[in-house]
Design a protein around this nucleic acid. Structure first.
Length: 488
RNA sequence: GGCCCCAUCGUCUAGCGGCUAGGACACUUGGUUCUCAUCCAGGAAACCGGAGUUCGAUUCUCCGUGGGGCUGCCA
């Protein structure tokens, strides 16, 4: 089954668009067929240079690149495939040809109405509480009149002629049977006065010639479906199957908007979410496997995904679930994989991380604590710069570390740890040694470990004392202890 | 206003005539614990309403109600 994703290059890729692309990609790949990317740049005013590359890079990031149409080759958007061009602004003659054919067959007609007239007409209709629809003023123009005006290059559009009286029936792959009364559907503009097609004409022509078997798109298109079906029939082409996906929603259940949410997929990349978490999250918004499995790799989605299990109702875009998924994925990654993803981020702040041979060891300490990748820099700061000694934080009434005994505790720490050889400097040995110290000095666990951890990290929250001491090394550990001791 | 779609815990959802209405997130109570996090155990939390069909409706039908989308020479 060939499927496509057909964004407008009007800005960053929307998360809703990314989910649509994911589902389309899954369907195509399940049948080992092509997933196409087509650029819908028929609105010249809204097109933004570079948007296409950005969209492609985002698809790459999550691992669902197109394999036909507009693709990324060495960072540059190029076209591949024998059904192109895949950019609508390069297909103008084709649209023109079929618009003319529709006029010839009586399924479309030129309309010379001015914007002003249309506006007045709509205002009138609204006032009478009627649905605003084109009144077919130009449908009654005489052939001579039309010819004259065309010859005079009078500004005009081409409208489709809805077959009033027909009932248009269709079965959507997600929603099941739907019916529309043709006379309630407007005579949609197919070709604008600038010669560009509207979405409606371009969609029908392109998806026919690009041999798309299943159109997967957002629910906002459902109400234009009758127009598309009429066009396919008028041109004598078989319509594809359609699957209209439920919308992604704001917390207040309105259509997901920039106003209330970060809607660009790229912003989640920038915040430090893993592509694995993003894909997993998006897949589960509006689809479920019917089992209790929550974690899915792309490969597992390929195995489990079906349109039958896609929800009809819209889904609230709930970041709390994303964060949980992110945590799951962080912990699921191998230490080396996670390290290499985090390393460049930490290196931005601490150059030493770049070639730190012990980096994985440090990441091991925070793997269960990180949610967003950039948090790692702060979590690891004490490895790369000496913490500022905060005597107030080293003391802890709750742990039984007071001004009266802190010096003695630190001395016990120094003595004990100094007794450990460099060779035996590891988690387990440090733990043994310190437990021995607790016994001999009659100290509680917290009395030993809280100050050790606080001195070594300078932070109220951090990985555990044993692990930090082990990763820091004997020399540095003792140096920090001694320095702290002097502060009291 | 018109047309179309939708409706189970706060959120994502399972359920496809008979269930103590299940899971996950979030919340909450404990446990583990030097802190934070992880992890483990428990708790609270839902079938929008009304008719009808049926021995029996969360489930099927209809009508309400509510929400959403569309209603552009934007997609």
């Amino acid at each position: 089954m060939r499927t496509r994703f057909a964004p407008s290059p009007t800005g960053l890729l929307h998360v809703g668009g990314l989910r649509t692309a994911l589902y389309a990609w899954l369907i195509a790949k399940q049948s080992k067929d092509h997933f196409l990317l087509r650029i819908e740049d028929t609105d010249q005013a809204r097109s933004i240079p570079g948007a296409t590359e950005n969209i492609l890079r985002t698809l790459d990031w999550v691992g669902i690149p197109p394999d036909e149409g507009v693709i990324l080759r060495e960072g540059v958007a190029t076209q591949t495939g024998d059904k192109g061009p895949y950019i609508q602004s390069e297909r103008l003659e084709l649209y023109k040809k079929y618009a003319d054919e529709l006029i010839a067959s009586g399924n479309a007609y030129p309309c010379f109405c001015t914007e002003e007239r249309l506006k007045n007409m709509r205002d009138e209709q609204m006032k009478r509480k009627q649905a605003p629809m084109y009144d077919r003023h130009c449908l009654s123009l005489s052939p001579d009149d039309i010819e004259q005006r065309l010859k005079a290059k009078e500004k005009h559009v081409i409208r489709m002629k809805m077959p009033h009286g027909n009932v248009i029936k269709f079965t959507d792959d997600i929603r099941g049977p739907i019916e529309f009364q043709a006379h309630l559907v407007d005579d949609q503009v197919l070709v604008k006065s600038d010669g560009f097609p509207t979405y409606h004409l371009a969609h029908v022509v392109d998806d026919h010639f690009m041999e798309i078997g299943l159109v997967i798109r957002g629910e906002e298109w459902l109400s234009s479906l009758p127009k598309h079906l009429v066009l396919f029939a008028a041109l004598g082409w078989a319509a594809p199957r359609y699957a209209h996906l439920p919308l992604l929603l704001n917390k207040d259940r309105s259509k997901l908007s920039k106003r209330q949410n970060d809607v660009s997929a790229e912003s989640y990349k920038d915040k430090g979410y893993l592509p694995e978490a993003m894909i997993n999250f998006l897949a589960m918004l509006g689809w479920n496997p019917g089992t209790t499995q929550e974690l899915f790799t792309t490969e597992e989605l390929l195995e489990a995904f079906t349109l039958e299990r896609v929800q009809k109702a819209g889904a609230v875009f709930d970041l709390e679930k994303l964060d949980w998924l992110q945590g799951q994925w962080i912990r699921k990654l191998s230490l080396s994989d996670l390290s290499e993803r985090i390393r460049p981020i930490v290196a931005e702040k601490y150059a030493a991380a770049e070639n730190d041979k012990e980096f994985e060891k440090k990441i091991a300490l925070i793997q269960e604590r990180v949610t967003l990748l950039p948090e790692a820099a702060d979590m690891l700061s004490f490895f790369y710069e000496e913490p500022v000694i905060d005597t107030a934080m080293i003391l802890s009434a709750k742990q039984g570390v007071e001004a009266a005994n802190v010096t003695m505790i630190i001395k016990a720490l120094v003595d004990t740890l100094d007794g450990l050889s460099e060779k035996k400097w590891n988690d387990a040995a440090i733990k043994d040694a310190l437990e021995g110290a607790m016994a001999t000095h009659d100290l509680k666990r917290g009395q030993i470990l809280w100050p050790l951890r606080a001195i070594l990290t300078g932070k109220p929250f951090s990985p555990g004392a044993y692990e930090v001491a082990a990763a820091l090394g004997k020399e540095e550990t003792l140096a920090r202890l001694q320095k702290a001791s002097a502060a009291f």
